[in-house]
Amino acid sequence: MKRMLFFARRNALEILREPISLFFGVLFPVVLLALLSLINSAIPAEANMTLYHIENLAPGIASFGLCFLSLFASMLISKDRCSSFMLRLRTSPLRSWEYIAGYCLPMLPMAVAQSLLCMLAAIPMGLQPTIGILGMAVGLLPTACLFIALGLLLGTVLSEKAIGGICGALLTNLSGWLSGTCFSIEMIGGTFETVCKVLPFYPSALAAKALLNGQWSQAVGNIGIVTAWAAAAAIAAVLIFTRKMKRDH
């Protein structure tokens, strides 16, 4: 446990000291929030367009912003894998579970902080500060776990170069476009709507909205969908990570 905490501290410092982490983790979601909020202010009230209202927009962006956790985790793991530093660690008494926990643990407080910062930034844009903000930050933990597990998985199998494309572009776009934050999923309907409801990104955004507005019971089903995906991703990540470690051994 003690060994794992030292390793977790190292991983937290490595991520927090990368300027790119601060940009994508904090600044980018806030900039996106500000831009979409600006668009909302240009939409006439008669249009009855509520999608970009801050109470809908902010939880969607907070949910989407967590996808960058995958980028941070996968970049760190991939970098470590390709370096002699990993060789040094692998000759140390660190066990497989300590590696996994050491990589994942620091991401959870980062996820909560990221969600809260996004909400704090939304307050001057018109968001009412309620207890729902805290509920949403906690309710998004399964989403954080999902993205952390995906980061662990992708960092284990992909090179640092490929991470940029898969995590930085593909996953980010998928989780953004399929979250229903920028356009109405119901408006498109059909297969697209079904796919969005099955994948975890849209349910996560819906759960975040419900939690922010204090509609706890409405969030449960969507949190369940996200949790199921997170559990599946975590199992796959742990299996592949430990298998890869053993194979390298």
């Binding site: 030292f6 190292r10 490595e14 002699s84 040094r88 140390s92």
Partner: peptide, 27 residues
């Protein structure tokens, strides 16, 4: 313990933090 051919350090940690990390990892 090993000191690999390529320098094996945690790049964003200071000298002191790197040393503390390794001490901690060994218990």
């Amino acid at each position: 313990a090993t000191s690999p051919q390529e320098t094996a350090v945690a790049p964003n940690l200071t000298t002191r933090e790197n040393l503390e990390l390794m001490a901690g990892i060994y218990g």
